[in-house]
Every structure is written in structure tokens, then in C-alpha cells.
Design a protein around this nucleic acid. Structure first.
Length: 269
DNA sequence: GAGCCTCGAGATCT
DNA sequence: CTCGAGGCTC
């Protein structure tokens, strides 16, 4: 006996080697709804205040047929909804607007491409700097990326071939959703203008690793203490740099202080 | 104040 | 995933 999708009644197949049954009817309303729920969910666009129930209600009312429709909701439409008063509407509109500049990996994940989870989305964002670039890629190019195989490559290309998906992306673009990497200006990074010099051995990581983190935050990693040095990071068995820093009156950091500073700057409290 | 919904933390599993 | 807390509506 074939199993059937509980929503649309279409016959459901169980792909070889996969645990889940999957309804293959692309017009299945349950699929559309799931995609919207996925789009607003935490790891994706993370639209606060919009959860399962609201997605369902908006979908049933026909106000939101696909994820991009969320960005076109207005006050009056939201006020029609059950248990929705001014306060909620304001909050929801604000959080929808705030989701427009989510980082690229999240946007890629939010699209809901089959087989693309958070990890793969992160990976793709390292190789493609916009959704459009990803949309233009070929299976061959994708397969050159380590840990991307034929299944994922095929799935991505198929996704962007679908007219429906292309339209959603256009709607997102028109609504002002950022579809490319945030090119953060160097000047705005937390370590802009700071130069760190490391002496001695670090417990927590190797020196190159620490330098990568400093640079990612817009700082410089120097090798000699000069008047331009902002901080001297002092690890175990430090060298003569300590004396030089003291002579120049340069602030010293122990490893713990340094790690603290990195974490704060990286926004991970 | 009651009830609904969503969030975030922490436990659990992979 | 499940739980409890907190926001919001009514």
C-alpha cells in the first residue's frame, strides 16, 4: 500500500537510503507552509515574534503564499488577524524589517534548498559572495568545493532553475533583503587601528591562529614592539619584548585578558 | 488575570 | 526536545 501525504493526498515516495518520506508534489500546500516556517525560523532569517501559528494563520488567510510575501505585509492586514493588536503588529513589522540584513549564510539557508543545512550554507557563503552568484553556478563548479558532492550540487542547480524560486528571490530583492555578503568597512571593525604584538607561548592557540583572529577583527598583528604597538600580549616564557614594551609604556595583556578582548570584539560574550 | 504564543536555556541525541 | 519565563491580547 503506497503512503500518501496527509495534506495533499499525493503519493509519497521514500527515496533509497533516506529515512524520511518526502512528498514530491511541489504544489502541496504543506510544503509551501513548511518553507515559510523554515524561512522565519531561528537558524534562518530569525524573524522574532513570527512562529508556527502565525505562519499558519497568514498562510491560511492567503496573505503569505511564500516567504517573500512576509516583506509586503502591512499594518491593516496584520490587524485583521486574531489576537493581533497594535503592539504586536508593530513588533512584528519591526522584526520583519530587521531581518532584511541577515548575513549571507543565513539567507542561503533560509531559501530552503533541499539538502542545504546550516553547515553547507556557511560553506557556500565562503565560495559565493551573493545569492545571484550561487544561482549562476554550475554543477561542475559546485563539485570542486570540498565536501560538496553530486547530490548537493544537483539540488542547488535544480533549485535555481525553478521559475517559482527565481520569482521569490526577485521579490526578496525588491523588498530590500540583502542577498550578498556584508562588506563591512575596515574602519568599523572593533580592532581597527590597533596593533597587537605577541610574545611567549600561548596556551589556548597557536600564534598564527591568534593572528588570524586579530586580523579578522580589523587589527594588525605585528612582530616587533614599536611606538605604534597598542598591546603586547604576554604568553608563557616571554622574551625581551616585555622590557621594550615597558620602556615605551605600552600596555601589556596576559593571555586571559587578551582572550576576553577577542571574545568581546567577536560578539561572543 | 487567564490563556496563547514565542523565545531562550539547558538537557539529549547525533 | 522539553521546560519555564515573559510579552501580548482580551
Amino acid at each position: 500500500m503506497p503512503s500518501r501525504c496527509p495534506v495533499c493526498g499525493a503519493e509519497v515516495i521514500k527515496p533509497e537510503g533516506e529515512a524520511m518520506h518526502r512528498c514530491t508534489n511541489t504544489a502541496c500546500p504543506a510544503q509551501a507552509l513548511e518553507k515559510i516556517k523554515h524561512f522565519v525560523s531561528r537558524g534562518a532569517m530569525d524573524i522574532e515574534g513570527v512562529g508556527e501559528k502565525l505562519c499558519l494563520a497568514l498562510f491560511e488567510k492567503g496573505l503569505v503564499k511564500d516567504a517573500a510575501d512576509l516583506y509586503y505585509l502591512n499594518r491593516e492586514q496584520l490587524l485583521q488577524m486574531e489576537r493581533m493588536a497594535d503592539k504586536s503588529v508593530t513588533n512584528i513589522l519591526n522584526s520583519i524589517a530587521a531581518s532584511k540584513d541577515r548575513p549571507l549564510p543565513r539567507v542561503i539557508f533560509a531559501l530552503g534548498i533541499t539538502h542545504i543545512g546550516g553547515e553547507t550554507a556557511d560553506l557556500l557563503a565562503e565560495y559565493f559572495s551573493s545569492v545571484d552568484e550561487l544561482a549562476r553556478t554550475t554543477q561542475e563548479q559546485l563539485r570542486d568545493i570540498p565536501s560538496i558532492g553530486p547530490t548537493i550540487a544537483e539540488s542547488i542547480v535544480a533549485f535555481f532553475r525553478q521559475e517559482q524560486n527565481r520569482q521569490i528571490i526577485e521579490k526578496l530583492r525588491k523588498a530590500g533583503v540583502k542577498l550578498k555578503v556584508n562588506e563591512i568597512k575596515k574602519k568599523d571593525l572593533p580592532f581597527a587601528g590597533l596593533e597587537f604584538v605577541i610574545t611567549g607561548k600561548l596556551e589556548s592557540s597557536t600564534r598564527p591562529e591568534a593572528e588570524v583572529r586579530i586580523k579578522a577583527l580589523g587589527g594588525k598583528a605585528g612582530s616587533d614592539v614599536t611606538r605604534k604597538t597598542s598591546y603586547l600580549v604576554v604568553g608563557a616564557d616571554p622574551g625581551s619584548k616585555v622590557a621594550r614594551a615597558e620602556a615605551l609604556g605600552i600596555e601589556k595583556l596576559n593571555e586571559e585578558q587578551f582572550l576576553d578582548m577577542l571574545k568581546k570584539a567577536e560578539g561572543k560574550p
